[in-house]
Structures are given as structure tokens and as C-alpha cells.
């Protein structure tokens, strides 16, 4: 079983029943995950098959709560803000890992920062202005030389401009 699977299992188990009894529940689940992994290579399958898993001993509380979005960290909302189309198994994995990291950074809440100025840069920085005079710049060809490649093999360029999907109706 890969470590990745173990991560997901622990995560799913925690979602269902908190931190307790993780080991007890992980054991039977591990066997299933290995089996699933070899057949379908995706935890999204495990979720879609939740109903058929309910028949297995010890797994009812887990399966009835099988919902990766039911935590404080609203991964769908954050992924939308970040403009990242995450897959279902990525969401489960990231939620578990981020909760661990967020637990760890909670320690900052105990630090006394009363009256302390925030540091945005190690040194004070100021706007820097140059003389308002034309200087060397990219030609249109240089600026567009890395334009995205389309399925046709051509670059997304038309008349020295980038081509994007229609934005307004």
C-alpha cells in the first residue's frame, strides 16, 4: 500500500469519527483501499461506491459521513478563489494535509504581538520612479513568442493579439 493511500484512509476515518479509533477503522479500510487502488486508481471511486461499503463491519459511521467538504476548511471555496480545478481525491488529500499544517501554525496565536509593527519587507521599501522616457521594449513577436499552444499545434495568436475564450456575450 502506498503512503498516499494511508494518508487518504486516515483522512477519511478522521472525517467520520474524529481522532479516536483511527487504528481500528484503518485496518479493514486499508485492505479495501489497496484493492480499490489496484482496480480503479482513484479514491473518487471509493466515495461513489459508499453505499455498497455500508455492508462492511465497522465502516458504517465512516461511510455515512463520507464527505470531504464537511470540515472547517472549505476546500471548494478556496480552490475556486485560487482558480485551481482540483480533482475529488486531490481535495481529500489537500484538506487533510492543510489541516495538519494549520494545526501546526496555530502556535502563532499564543505569541504576544501587542503593539508590534508588521514586517512586509526586511527593509523599508519605497516606490522607485524612472524618467518618463521611451526605452527598449519587446517587439510584438517577442512578446507573443510564448503564447499558449492550441490543440491544432498553432499558437493562440491572431493579428498580434492573444486569443482567449469569449468573455462577454
Amino acid at each position: 500500500m502506498s503512503v498516499l493511500d494511508a494518508d487518504i484512509i486516515v483522512r477519511l476515518t478522521r472525517l467520520a469519527c474524529g481522532q479516536d479509533d483511527v487504528a481500528d477503522l484503518t485496518k479493514p479500510l486499508a485492505g479495501i483501499a489497496v484493492d480499490m487502488h489496484s482496480k480503479y486508481d482513484s479514491m473518487s471511486f471509493l466515495m461513489s461506491e459508499a453505499n455498497s461499503l455500508k455492508a462492511l463491519p465497522n465502516l458504517q459511521p465512516l461511510v455515512s459521513n463520507l464527505n470531504p467538504m464537511s470540515t472547517q476548511l472549505d476546500i471548494d471555496y478556496i480552490a475556486e478563489l485560487a482558480r485551481l480545478a482540483l480533482k475529488a481525491d486531490e481535495k481529500i488529500r489537500l484538506t487533510g494535509q492543510l489541516e495538519g499544517i494549520l494545526d501546526y501554525i496555530q502556535q502563532l496565536q499564543n505569541v504576544d504581538v501587542e503593539g508590534v509593527e508588521p514586517t512586509a519587507h526586511a527593509f523599508s521599501i519605497y516606490n522607485v520612479y524612472r524618467a518618463d522616457e521611451p526605452g527598449p521594449t519587446f517587439t510584438p513577436e517577442e512578446a507573443l513568442m510564448n503564447a499558449p499552444l492550441l490543440a491544432s499545434g498553432k499558437r493562440a495568436i491572431r493579428e498580434d493579439q492573444l486569443v482567449v475564450p469569449k468573455v462577454v456575450e
Binding site: 485560487a82 482558480r83 485551481l84 510564448n146 499558449p148 490543440a151 493562440a156 492573444l162 482567449v164 475564450p165
Partner: peptide, 25 residues
Amino acid sequence: YDGVRYTHRSAEVSDAIDLFAKSRA
């Protein structure tokens, strides 16, 4: 890195937001 000016662009996108999200993913 949004798939618009340079970088990888996802092949099948429905609109601009979808282009960002899929290309980045």
C-alpha cells in the same frame, strides 16, 4: 501562470474562468 499569455493552456475549456482553473490544475 493562468494559461492566457504564456504557459500551458488546457485543451478543452468552456469559458475564461475554466481556462484559468483547468490550465493551472
